[in-house]
Design a protein around this nucleic acid. Structure first.
Lengths: 126, 126
DNA sequence: TTAATTGTATTACAGGTGTAATCTATAAGG
DNA sequence: CCTTATAGATTACACCTGTAATACAATTAA
């Protein structure tokens, strides 16, 4: 499994949102929030290419980067391994934590209800 | 915020389960599953003490270790920061991932329903 | 009382990470 | 053509982490 570090993840997130960006595009997108040097971002791009997380097409001298792994896949894999490590594999206690900190909103609850409904439907139809 | 590494976390988990264990107790508890050298576990104990995650009482020449941070606090903090990083702060998509991989069981669903009921109760009583 | 054992403390060392600076090759400008 | 700016490639460097080995101190055994 490809391991993506924290700083690298920020770069991936830019490219998950809009693909085929040049290094400078990525720098521009990131340096709004982050206070990173251009060289830092280029290092991260390089490392991500080495790791097989990004590919690129050449556009003259510059590269246009794109993700080689889908954000959803990454989220699934990370979610599973995180919940495994920290919550012994049970997701409900994590949600309980959010609830206890008032970090659930109506949207979340709506989505959760739908998930539960679907799950029960699935059970029933077995 | 205290940062606890992966290997260190395994040590913390032993001490969250039973406090006031000697280094050898921790080694014994861990070396059932993990294939770690005794020295490795002692290094981890040391690092955790340095980080302020563990304290100890002396028992003669040996130390008896105990956690200085509660597992629940750690879980809350990690849960929030993980969901923030990977899921833009929304917990429902993480649960959706579990559902999609058939990693929800009846217990989880029961707990989630209860959380939702409590949440709605809370809303209603505002 | 000296030697062996056993706890903790210190040191080791390679690979990953955050955070760049420098090198090198090429395209663009004069 | 020659110089400069600029793209990616290579190198840097300190700190963290996984994974111990070695050093030191005190207790126990002989």
């Amino acid at each position: 499994m490809i391991e993506i570090s924290n700083a690298e993840l920020s770069v991936m997130q830019v490219l998950w949102q809009r693909q085929l960006l040049s290094a400078n595009d990525v720098v521009a997108a990131l340096c709004n929030d982050k206070d990173w040097h251009e060289k830092t971002v280029k290092t991260l791009l390089n490392r991500l290419v080495s790791k097989g997380a990004l590919g690129f097409d050449k556009d003259g001298r510059a590269y246009l980067y794109y993700p080689l792994i889908a954000e959803q896949d990454y989220q699934l894999q990370q979610g599973r391994s995180f919940v495994e490590r920290i919550f012994a594999g049970r997701v409900a206690p994590l949600v309980a934590g959010f609830a206890s900190q008032n970090k659930l909103n109506a949207d979340d609850v709506q989505q959760l209800k739908q998930l539960i409904a679907d799950w029960e439907q699935e059970q029933h139809h077995d």
